[in-house]
Amino acid sequence: MIIDTHCHIYSSEMENAEEIISEAGNNGICVILNGIDVSSNKEVLELVAKYDNAYAALGYFYSVADEITDEDIALLDSQIENDNVVAVGEIGLDYYYTKDNADKQKELFEKMLDLAQKHDLPVIVHSRKSMQDTFDILKKHDVVGSMHCYQGSAEMAREFIKLGFYIGIGGPITYKNNKKTKKVIKTMDINHMLVETDSPYLTPQDKRGEKNTPLNLKYIIREIAHELDLDEDEVIEITTENAKTLFKI
């Protein structure tokens, strides 16, 4: 078994979502489907009820920080009680396009972390151009989780690991000019690493131009094995155990 710890496989992102989930299962891949808003959270719950190889992570993303209401928070609070939910996510901060609503992003992020604490669930965190704020907020909460598609430094990765976080490694590790992520994985223990695709995004180098799917985990695993001088089976075994431990699968 291999666990794709982060993907967005539902109809608003991929027309053939159910086919992709089924195909992943036929290839020994479990998927954690990450919702980001009211509609995708609803669909994720519907999908994971149908497929034994699919688990749910529910949350409200930074992109909806300006529109989420108290009623939406209450809805998510109730949805998280579903037995198929293994994490609160995808949540976090993103200042890449704008910091104008940074305060609202932080407020929503904190509410998501509060829900994770309440339900004793790990979190799946997005952080882009916002690493220090993300770290400072996580320090204030008693949570563990995954730093999805980690883009920070090796030094900061060690600080997140100290907080109890795993480092999510996806398609960008295969990009020839991505020396930063390659350095990160070489300076950390693989026992703190997860593999993910972020399907349909961040397609590995060998499949650039196509929508990403969980089947492309093999390219990510191959690159990690190459960089760390490990057997691919060893990378699969360790990262799968890491995911099972974090998400209690």
Rank of each mutant, 00 (worst) to 15 (best):
K139D: 10
M112I: 02
H119F: 02
V38K: 13
V44R: 03
H126G: 08
Q205W: 00
S22V: 11
L194F: 12
S40H: 09
G168T: 10
I91D: 04
A24G: 11
Y51P: 03
F160T: 03
D189I: 07
F61C: 05
R158M: 01
D66F: 03
A17S: 13
I236C: 07
Q117M: 10
P214K: 06
E107D: 15
G89S: 08
A49D: 14
S78C: 07
L194V: 07
G170K: 02
D120V: 12
M1L: 10
V86Y: 08
G164L: 07
D142I: 12
A116D: 09
V48Q: 04
I21Q: 06
Y95L: 00
Q205I: 08
G59V: 04
N216F: 14
A65Q: 06
L113S: 03
T245N: 15
D133R: 00
N41E: 07
K106T: 07
A87H: 06
Q79V: 02
P122N: 00
D142E: 15
I173Q: 06
V235D: 08
S199I: 01
K139L: 06
S11D: 13
K211C: 04
G145H: 02
G145M: 05
S153L: 07
S146T: 15
T213R: 12
I29E: 08
P204T: 01
A17D: 14
M1K: 00
E15S: 14
V86K: 11
T245D: 15
Y175A: 01
E241H: 06
S40Y: 01
L138V: 03
D37Q: 07
D231M: 13
S63K: 15
N242F: 11
T187V: 10
N191V: 12
V184E: 05
S153V: 03
Y10S: 09
L76E: 05
G89Q: 08
K207W: 13
D120S: 14
K162S: 15
V123G: 01
I220C: 03
Q205N: 10
H226A: 14
E19H: 11
L246E: 09
T134Q: 04
N26A: 00
K211A: 05
S146H: 02
C7D: 02
H192I: 09
Y60R: 01
T69W: 04
Y51R: 00
C149D: 12
S63R: 12
T174G: 09
Y175D: 03
I32N: 11
Y60Q: 05
A116S: 12
K183M: 08
